[in-house]
């Protein structure tokens, strides 16, 4: 099935491989960078810094209005 799909797809033009290669490269690089970023600042100082930054909106005011 996949073989038939591939041969039918590329029968139109072998150049159709280029967008697929491009998409694969993009997804790979994007994935690697995402993983790297997710893992950055894993040390104690890094964790504390990230927690501080992520909490900035929560620590910026005095009052809290309660909804009914």
């Amino acid at each position: 099935m996949l073989g038939w799909f591939a041969s039918d797809f590329f029968a139109q033009s072998p150049l159709l491989a280029f967008p697929l290669v491009g998409l694969t490269i993009f997804i790979t690089v994007f994935g690697v960078i995402t993983l790297r970023t997710i893992h950055m600042g894993k040390g104690h100082a890094g964790k504390a810094r990230i927690q501080h930054l992520a909490s900035l909106p929560l620590n910026d005011s005095n009052e809290e209005i309660q909804h009914d």
Binding site: T34, T37, M40, L53, P57, L58
Partner: peptide
């Protein structure tokens, strides 16, 4: 969204690191 959603939900943004990717990309 990154400011008001954490305030409304009363919890920090899910992944601060993901927001770095989100922004630059």
């Amino acid at each position: 969204m990154y400011y008001f959603l954490p305030k409304a939900a009363d919890r920090p943004v899910f992944s601060y690191r993901l927001s770095i990717i989100h922004f630059w990309a």
